[in-house]
Nucleic acid binder design. Structure first.
Lengths: 202, 202
DNA sequence: CTACCCATTGAACAAGTGTTCAGTTAACCT
DNA sequence: AGGTTAACTGAACACTTGTTCAATGGGTAG
């Protein structure tokens, strides 16, 4: 046996990414072997090296593709700069929730496996992530300027809000107690309250 | 060479926990070998098995000790139930921030290595964590009842707040732009706003 | 001084690791 | 029909993995 009937390099390449993503998310990068991935793809381990130079590159590609997709999707879904900061913020919250829930595995990997990246790859990924954080930071700063938001520190607040939103992926389940629309409402309220300041000062 | 001069079982046992904690946090459970841990302790790998039955138990012990310590510390630091919900919440935020920042490695492990636990161990850990989440959920429910807080869903809000606070550990550095006291102020404000509702409804 | 225990070594075990490569076959092109 | 290329196998490489255990020497009580 060598080449299989109906084999297709393009398909195997995407299957590889999909299998690796699922396994890395479930067990962690270091705990998954190339042979496990190969089995999931339905191929011998050696064949994987036609589609990735090595295991590390596989991890890096998955992360980078995810973050590029995230930034790209935001560019097409964001409101124009002329919109009010509050409207932009609401759009961001909604976008972040939906994009992340639809890609729970990739999100998990992008947040958990940073320490398994080579220093050079880590630098690239960190920079891309920083660009995304700056999106929210920019919205907060705009609202701070117009007086719509009461924020003591835009950078910290953006970190806090992103952490809060991303945390959803760890507990969200389809068929849970609340619908996704209800959950989004709760989070919109929390974020709105956090940036608007409270009625009375403590 | 067999026994070393000045050797002490009690000390080696605590050294083992410390070394494993540091290494697991830095590289991840699966990426760290017993030989690496042994080297950090200053001992051969075989000797570790006098102090832990296996690698898995080592991970479980570290997590369980951390979560038990967290719950225990809260019991001694929390305000009496007679205190106002807002005061209790502020105490919780302050406690959570300080306790977690002082134990960045343990926190990291407790959140990242859940998937490397055996199912039975995972169940135990999850239950302990749930008890901690219920602390905050209880405070929020109390404030909801008195009307001090405007919260649409206590469970979700507790998840969101804990995620927001715990996220700090991923970026906080001593000697950063802001002092810890300043950071705490920012977070107190964000949490207060989130639970108090905003001035105007969107 | 002797006997015992505690703490440790160092080698060994079987299994698994990422990665390479000569060989083999299916699919496509002429 | 024949040749070329793309896709893949299966074995091999040198190492690392978690874990066990007989052997060994320091520390201490009698």
């Amino acid at each position: 046996m060598a080449r299989k009937t109906g084999s297709d390099g393009k398909k195997t390449a995407t299957d590889l990414r999909a299998a690796a993503t699922a396994l890395f998310a479930k067990h962690g990068f270091a705990a998954v072997s190339m042979r496990q991935i190969a089995q999931k793809v339905g191929v011998q381990a050696g064949a994987l090296y036609l589609y990735t130079p090595n295991k590390q590159a596989l991890l890096f590609d998955i992360m980078q593709q995810h973050l590029d997709g995230l930034l790209g999707a935001w560019e097409t879904e964001k409101l124009p700069d002329s919109a009010t900061p509050l409207a932009q913020l609401q759009r961001f919250v909604s976008f972040h929730i939906h994009y992340h829930l639809d890609r729970a595995d990739e999100v998990f990997i992008a947040y958990m496996e940073l320490r398994n990246l080579l220093p050079e790859n880590l630098a690239t990924i960190s920079e891309t992530r920083r660009r995304y954080e700056l999106v929210l930071e920019g919205i907060l700063a705009a609202g701070q300027k117009t007086g719509d938001f009461q924020i003591s520190d835009c950078k910290l607040s953006s970190y806090a809000i992103i952490a809060m939103l991303t945390g959803m992926t760890t507990w969200y389940r389809d068929q849970g107690r609340l619908s996704l629309a209800e959950i989004e409402q709760v989070y919109q309220g929390l974020v709105y309250g956090a940036v608007s300041g409270a009625k009375t000062k403590s």
